[in-house]
């Protein structure tokens, strides 16, 4: 790991309890700048709970999360997004009755300024901003491999395209860190390969760090630099994909339970 620069995200001793149930147990986790790291673990290991704490959907019971030098532990989702954390959802959550283009434009919300009066009076400044935003949104759609779907409703897109649209929408928030929550869930093998190629391209062309959450180990092995394995809310292994793959506790965690390795 890069020791020289401060990591982009540092989660320190983060803990989450629901009632009496411990979902995440004092987890330390860092994401270096421009890295691609993965968080894996069997279903119910606490991955998504941790993810939801990073994005402000859940509030950590204890511990701190610092992103880009700012403590985001108690910040609401929209503020965290504005600081530069973009995300997708495990079970796709697009705005179904909005077009693909509008979905991406919603993602730009925190980067645009148009106010009420400016929009009503159609001020040149607001019109220009809208025009530029639309242009940029179309570029993002093309970049994400979505062709000729700009004006289609999100709910009418094919499944793989919906996944891509979620990424395009997340990219529209101009993230420094992109969080992908099981992005290949429900995809067939070809779609999965194509999607991972897309993630690799994203990584090359944009200066962002990526955190990938998966329960399927195969998916992350080729794609990530560092893998962290969670089980019952605890970190049981961390290291390069190879190291992790040979770790006995990891094998046990996966084989001991319903595994998808």
């Amino acid at each position: 790991m890069n020791q020289a620069a401060d990591p982009l995200l540092v989660a320190d001793n983060v803990r989450k309890e629901f009632g009496g149930l411990l979902a995440v147990n004092d987890l330390d986790f860092t994401i270096p700048e421009r890295s691609i790291v993965s968080l894996i673990g069997p279903n119910g290991a606490g991955k998504t709970t941790f993810f939801n704490m990073l994005t402000g959907l859940y509030r950590a019971t204890s511990g701190t999360i610092v992103f880009d030098g700012v403590d985001i532990t108690d910040k609401p989702p929209h503020a965290i997004t504005k600081l530069g954390v973009g995300r997708t959802f495990q079970n796709i959550r697009l705005f179904p009755q909005m077009t693909a283009l509008e979905n991406v434009l919603v993602g730009m919300h925190s980067r645009l300024k148009g106010g009420i009066l400016g929009s009503i009076f159609g001020l040149p400044r607001v019109r220009r901003e809208e025009r530029e935003a639309e242009e940029k949104a179309r570029e993002l759609l093309a970049f994400s491999g979505l062709k000729r779907v700009d004006d289609q409703l999100a709910e009418s897109l094919a499944y793989g395209d919906q996944r891509r649209l979620e990424v395009a929408r997340a990219l529209a928030t101009e993230p420094k860190l992109l969080l992908l929550d099981e992005p290949t869930a429900g995809m067939n093998p070809q779609e999965t390969v194509a999607f991972l190629d897309f993630v690799a391209k994203l990584r090359e062309e944009r200066p962002i760090a990526i955190l990938l959450i998966e329960h399927d180990m195969k998916v992350v092995m080729g794609a990530s630099e560092r893998v962290t394995v969670l089980d019952y809310g605890e970190k049981i292994a961390e290291g390069s994909p190879n190291e992790v793959q040979q770790d006995e506790r990891v094998i046990e965690a996966y084989l001991g339970r319903t595994a998808s390795v």
Partner: peptide, 11 residues
């Protein structure tokens, strides 16, 4: 359409 997703998109 989806309040949670809207919040996560910076609204």
């Amino acid at each position: 359409e989806d309040e949670t997703a809207a919040g996560a998109m910076g609204i």
